[in-house]
Design a protein around this nucleic acid. Sequence first.
RNA 1: GGGAGCGUUCCCGAGUGGCCAAAGGGGGCAGACUGUAAAUCUGUUGUCGACGACUUCGGUGGUUCGAAUCCACCCGCUCCCA
Length: 377
Amino acid sequence: MFEIIRTEGHARRGRFRCAHGGEVQTPVFMNVGTQGAIKGALSAHDLKDIKCQIELSNTYHLHLRPGDQVVRSLGGLHKMMDWDGPILTDSGGFQVFSLSGLRKITEEGVTFASHIDGRRIFMGPEESMQIQANLGSDIAMAFDECVENPAPYEYVKQSCERTLRWLVRCREEHRCLCARPDCLNPAQMLFGINQGGTYEDLRVWHMDQIARVDCDGYAVGGLAVGEATEVMYRILDVVLPHAPEDKPRYLMGVGTPSNIIEGVWRGIDFFDCVMPARNARHGKLFTWQGSLNIKNEKYKLDTGPIDPACSCPVCRSFSRAYLRHLFKAEEMLAMRLAVMHNLWFYNTLMERIRDALDAGEFAAFRAEYSEKLDRKV
RNA sequence: GGGAGCGUUCCCGAGUGGCCAAAGGGGGCAGACUGUAAAUCUGUUGUCGACGACUUCGGUGGUUCGAAUCCACCCGCUCCCA
């Protein structure tokens, strides 16, 4: 179920519901827990404390370890993690990009050399759907090829044509699996993924094609993988008018706070990105004045919170100086607190975007924050 | 008392006549990170008016065109024997 409550220009304020959890308010940021955990030592319980509405895990990683059959035996991903909210699983398509040195693509699918032990793993549309069925996620992503930018036109053309054929196979396999009596999550949704690199004609053609394959939502993939930010915005500008209006739209793997505001402005409803968690682990923290590196010497004696404008559990209790010390001393707590802060920041950013949309003031919000939040302080 | 070593830039530690402002770690300082092979990776770390110059390798002298590297003495430390 997806419902648009109101719009402001291309931006959409909506509600979404799936098999688990209550209503998801969109635009929403999905917190990334690739292997069933948020890196930085957070559990699903912690996610509740940082205003996370929906969590994301990864097909490829959980298939390798502990194995999707194991997850199924444990009652599915929700039960294993003790998370009763919505879960989206990425299909493994991004690993076709990120493990490019370790894989081979054919029409059937992709053969990976496991990054763990080198053993050969085959994954095609059917396998990806089967694994995601075993995980029991609420949203399964179609198996696609995420192509690095820039890439030659001919290659991108052939690749996105193949990704379209893969989507058709995903659709069939997914229906089939959900119809089985032993299906862990018969209400699991399937989102298709738009590709086409930086070529507007391919992007539009591909979106028109996948829009004909009945999906529960449509994602834009293959962005923020090498092209300039302006190019990404241009692609969104041309492709989103071709996405079904009544279905959720998900911009995969993006991005910075500014990228998110600009994405919402162009009509995106769902986002996910490793950036807030990874940057947090590396000491880069987001604030309403821009980002800062908490490891910098200037915070050595700073008794203030990370962000005076933040009311997250970390800012309520701990000083910049303490955080800096924990980082310098390489205490695990440093990463945990930093990740909690950054995810709270992202979830709060989405909340404020929604509030602005509700008030019909998103344009003003964008003008005030879009550029500012990506600056360094 | 006798014998054997050692002392290098913030720390540890290479270097034993010119290619040495001096390897490599650590620490420090800074940067990167966008559907997570990332608690990772990169740069930098003697001084200065800085594509060049100057001062460093326990101290003081000396040998040499040239010394962190060789010699003498001194200072400090370690170990072994008595």
